[in-house]
């Protein structure tokens, strides 16, 4: 029985961890702009080359 109580506490604390992660992400403004991050991640850091991923970035934006 005590095992179940222990599990209960564990599962709720894991869940609350996710809840706080969610609250933090809202506060952090991650839901303010849902377009830019998806495009930004596809840019290359260095100039030149890798056109494919840039095209992918363009495509992501257009959809």
């Amino acid at each position: 029985m005590s095992v179940i109580i222990l599990l209960l506490i564990a599962s709720i604390s894991v869940a609350s961890l996710f809840l706080f992660a969610f609250i933090w992400s809202v506060k952090n403004g991650q839901y303010d702009d849902e377009i830019a991050p998806a495009v930004r991640i596809l840019f290359e850091d260095k100039p030149g080359g890798k056109r494919e991923r840039d095209l992918l970035a363009e495509e992501t934006l257009n959809n």
Partner: peptide, 21 residues
């Protein structure tokens, strides 16, 4: 942007799922 509804939604979702469990 008023994000209070998002917080409320998050809290409700968390409680709903755990209560169901």
């Amino acid at each position: 942007i008023d994000s209070s509804k998002l917080y409320k939604l998050g809290v409700a979702g968390f409680c709903f799922a755990n209560i169901m469990l």
